[in-house]
Design a protein around this nucleic acid. Structure first.
Lengths: 131, 131
DNA sequence: TAGATGTTATATAAGTAATATAACAAACAA
DNA sequence: TTGTTTGTTATATTACTTATATAACATCTA
């Protein structure tokens, strides 16, 4: 897997990293137990401050996607369920954008299915690495 | 319809207003030709600066959801299609959040269907009002 | 021991969001 | 006409967010 920073992206860097990790988990590229690079290491590779990486990890931890321990660093550890209130609201806004532009319901659903088809199995710890 | 400002919402005010208008169009609460309040009027009602409202209208105009003329003010006028690149990417991130949390594909699709079922017909100009 | 790591703290700079005014031309109502 | 409203543009200020730059500390490891 590969984490990167897109300077043309309007999202903050810490949010880009957070989104990339979440999508990597969804794709199955990384799974339960997969170690994430240390904040200082990843910051050096991406040429950003380690506080920025730390913030992304903090967010992922708060959202229940990774676990951070002083000993073994950060590792994928999914806990809890998708928060129904805000998650659903964000999804509704996203779908509304297309529907308001006259995209048929079935076409919207087809896009959702295509995206979901691109996600993989949740594999526990097959030694994948992030960099 | 009712536009409002949620101070607890982490989104910027102009983004909240933009999202609310888009969802109102999707629901069918407002349609082609429906007039939006003047920037100064809406700003007064919501107790925000009229520049904030103006920014929301600017965004909606750039995205092709409304038309703003000096004569008749702002009105719903949908043009173009949903931008495939960024829209699809945002949707993928949104779906990934649920899938990464072990939500089954069918459950995710059911939520999408429920949301889409809440959207209505696109009615042209039935004299609905925003306030 | 020495180095790396997570953690916390402080400071600074740049960008964004929101407000406060002001001014102007075009449209409209009295 | 006069007066008001509206969209538009401009400038300035404040507050918050994002990102960086250091520094320091305790813990873990080689």
């Amino acid at each position: 897997m590969l984490l990167y920073v897109d300077l043309a992206d309007r999202r903050p860097v810490y949010q880009q990293l957070r989104d990339q990790v979440v999508e990597a988990i969804a794709r199955g590229d990384i799974g339960e137990g997969t170690r994430l690079p240390t904040t200082r290491q990843l910051a050096a590779d991406l040429a950003v401050n380690f506080h920025t990486v730390s913030r992304a990890y903090d967010l992922l931890r708060q959202e229940g996607f990774i676990q951070v321990s002083r000993k073994s660093g950060a590792a994928v550890y999914v806990s809890g369920k998708a928060a129904p209130p805000e998650w659903r609201a964000s999804l509704r806004t996203q779908l509304a954008e297309a529907y308001a532009k006259d995209m048929p319901r079935d076409d919207i659903l087809d896009v959702c299915k295509e995206i979901l088809a691109g996600f993989g199995q949740r594999e526990p710890h097959r030694g994948s690495s992030l960099a």
